[in-house]
Every structure is written in structure tokens, then in C-alpha cells.
């Protein structure tokens, strides 16, 4: 029997993990990545929730024992996907042609563009940053300072930026931002012990084991203050600090608070690649633009197209544990499909 080939589209954690497992299972693997390198968002991340494990450890583990038999193609954009009998024919912008017996879509997510929440002033006010920016600062070991070079005395984390927000066109919960905010707040407090740090939230969704514990620790040990209220607008004060307006819903009064730094917890959206590949393949999108498996409970990797499978956060917000487990589970499904 000829060795079957699987084309894995997307080289983030899901795509890398699945490629490795497919190769270990004896399949030929072509891993296609639109970016310059593998690893996806892990490359930009410093430490992971809930245990503040360095993201680099995960990347290292993904690269460890990475089979040389895998054909890795970076900076590769797929322009068309056709079929010839049971085989898929993928053409790339670089005029490569890849043939495969099955496709695994691991195209992942992108973060919400915070500029779209105009009233929060990202890209306009000097001291408004996103959770991704802050993580980058941590990764680069850049000191946390305001744009005026001062150590911030007050910092606010704004939850649900571009999530659970009809005005942004996103109804879904991005799921991982709550615990990310708590993690980042704790890390910031470790760096700035004198700072007063606030989280402004609608609901706190500490869904994973260890998350609630981290939240509790953040309250007791790090004295992060949680204020239940969603930011309606921010404004820049004369000194470059921000005036934030929320309702302190638990006291039922409008609250005005000055913050030296405002961190927007940007939500989880389907990546451009997810949208593009989903369209090329004629896959079903759910109302939030993620790819819809045939049956979320029972056939979580199958699609309406025979031989096309899904794994990872192209299906919706996932933490890393879920993404990696989903990738391994997809490999089992593909093996079943290709060996029967």
C-alpha cells in the first residue's frame, strides 16, 4: 500500500502537534504555514496561564523530535484546492502543487483589532495597550512604563474587548482572556509591587482547573482588585493618564477612575486563514465565523467535505491544553479514515 499523504494547513501548536503525530503514525505529512515560522501565537507569548510556564517550553517541546520526514513549507499561501478522484490538489501562490489524501485544517485564530473599540482609544491614547502588547513587553523584558517614562501607579485590565459584544459583531466568549488578565495582572504586580491593579469584568470565567485558584491568589496575595463593570469609554487626561468610566455594578453607581495604563483584553476571532481556507473548501462556518465540525460532540473533526478535518482554534476559542488534545484526537480520526 502506498504511504498516504496528509496536508496540514496551519503551523501553530495544533498543526505542529498533529503533524508530528501523523508522521509517527507512518503518514507522509506536508505542513503548510502562511507565516515565516512555525509555532503560531506561541512565538509572541511570554508565559502561559495558569502556572506561568514559559511559552518557550511548549515551543521547544513541539520542535523536539520533530520528524525530518515532514515537509515544512513556510510563507506559503494556498490559492486553490481541487480534487482528483480521492486526492486533493493544493496550489500555492508560489506555484507549488501539493497532492494529499486528507486535509487537516489548523488555521487557528487571530485577536480582535482593538482599534475598532473606538471609545477605548487604542491607537489614539498614548497609554492604552492590548494584552498582546503587554505580553510582548514581558517577553522582551521591557520595563513597564507609561509613554511618558513613568512607572504606572494604577493599571486597569479591561475584560471582554471585542468579545460578547454585539457592537463588535462578536457574540461569543473568547474564554481565555479572563484567566489571561488575571495572569498578566499578577505578573505586573510582581514587577510593580506598588501599583494598584484593577480588573474590570462582566463575568469572570475561570473554567479550567487551577484558574480559580490563580484568581483567588491574585486577590489574596497580589491584591488585584476586581470591579464588576464594563468600560463604557476612556479619555486621556492632560498628563496622559486615562479617565475610565465604568459602572461599579455592585454598588450600582457610575465610577470614574484614573489609570496610568489601560490594558485591553482582546478577544479571540477566526484567523484570516480560517476564513480563507474555509471558503476555498466550502466548509460550514458557525455564526461567529469559526469552522463548524459536523457534530461538535460526536464528530468534532469531521466536516461536510469528505477527507477534510478540523483541529484546534479554527473551531472556536481554546486554551493550549484543549488545542493540543484536539490535534492528537484529529490524528486518530484521520488514521481511521485513511486506513479503512
Amino acid at each position: 500500500m502506498m504511504t498516504k499523504t496528509v496536508a496540514v494547513i496551519g503551523g501553530g501548536p495544533a498543526g505542529m502537534e498533529a503533524s508530528k503525530e501523523l508522521a509517527f503514525n507512518g503518514f507522509q505529512v506536508v505542513l503548510l504555514e502562511s507565516g515565516a515560522r512555525l509555532g503560531g501565537h506561541m512565538n509572541q507569548w511570554d508565559r502561559l496561564f495558569p502556572n506561568k510556564r514559559p511559552a518557550g517550553e511548549i515551543l521547544e517541546s513541539l520542535y523536539r523530535n520533530f520528524p525530518g520526514s515532514i515537509t515544512v513549507m513556510t510563507e506559503t499561501n494556498i490559492t486553490s484546492i481541487g480534487r482528483n478522484a480521492d486526492r486533493f490538489i493544493l496550489r500555492t501562490a508560489g506555484r507549488d502543487v501539493i497532492e494529499a489524501d486528507a486535509l487537516l485544517v489548523c488555521t487557528g485564530f487571530r485577536v480582535f483589532d482593538a482599534i475598532l473599540k473606538e471609545e477605548y482609544g487604542y491607537g489614539i491614547y498614548d497609554n492604552v495597550i492590548t494584552s498582546v502588547d503587554l505580553e510582548q513587553w514581558f517577553k522582551e523584558k521591557r520595563p513597564v512604563l507609561t509613554s511618558h517614562g513613568r512607572v504606572p501607579a494604577t493599571v486597569g485590565f479591561i475584560h471582554c474587548v471585542g468579545s460578547r459584544d454585539e457592537k463588535s459583531g462578536n457574540l461569543h466568549c473568547s474564554k481565555v482572556c479572563c484567566v489571561t488578565a488575571v495572569k498578566q495582572a499578577v505578573e505586573l504586580k510582581e514587577k510593580l509591587p506598588e501599583a494598584r491593579i484593577f480588573c474590570f469584568y462582566m463575568d469572570l470565567r475561570m473554567f479550567g482547573l487551577g484558574y480559580e485558584e490563580l484568581y483567588k491568589e491574585s486577590q489574596e496575595k497580589y491584591r488585584i482588585q476586581f470591579i464588576r463593570g464594563r468600560l463604557s469609554e476612556a479619555f486621556e487626561n492632560m498628563d496622559g493618564s486615562l479617565m475610565a468610566k465604568v459602572e461599579d455594578t455592585l454598588t450600582a453607581k457610575p465610577l470614574r477612575i484614573n489609570l496610568d495604563l489601560l490594558v485591553l483584553m482582546v478577544g479571540f476571532l477566526p484567523s484570516d486563514g480560517t476564513a480563507a481556507i474555509g471558503s476555498l473548501l466550502g466548509l460550514t462556518f458557525n455564526p461567529n465565523g469559526f469552522l463548524q465540525p459536523r457534530d461538535g460532540h460526536l464528530q468534532p473533526h469531521d466536516t461536510e467535505q469528505q477527507g477534510v478535518f478540523l483541529a484546534g482554534s479554527c473551531k472556536g476559542p481554546k486554551n493550549l491544553e484543549e488545542t493540543l488534545a484536539d490535534a492528537r484526537s484529529a490524528v486518530l480520526r484521520i488514521r481511521q479514515y485513511l486506513t479503512n
Binding site: 483567588k216 486577590q219 489574596e220 491584591r223 454598588t251 453607581k253 465610577l255 470614574r256 477612575i257
Partner: peptide
């Protein structure tokens, strides 16, 4: 009616917290 955070008197909560840290939870 708008509460201005900076006008709060946080001296009491600081002292109480030392006596009963579980307050923060």
C-alpha cells in the same frame, strides 16, 4: 452620583486587611 475612585478613603480597608486578610477573597 458618579463615584470618583481617588476620593475614597482606603485607610480603613488597609488596616482591616491586615487584621483579616480573607477580606480580599
Amino acid at each position: 452620583r458618579q463615584v470618583i475612585w481617588e476620593e475614597g478613603d482606603f485607610s480603613l480597608v488597609e488596616r482591616i486587611r491586615l487584621a483579616e486578610p480573607s477580606l480580599c477573597l
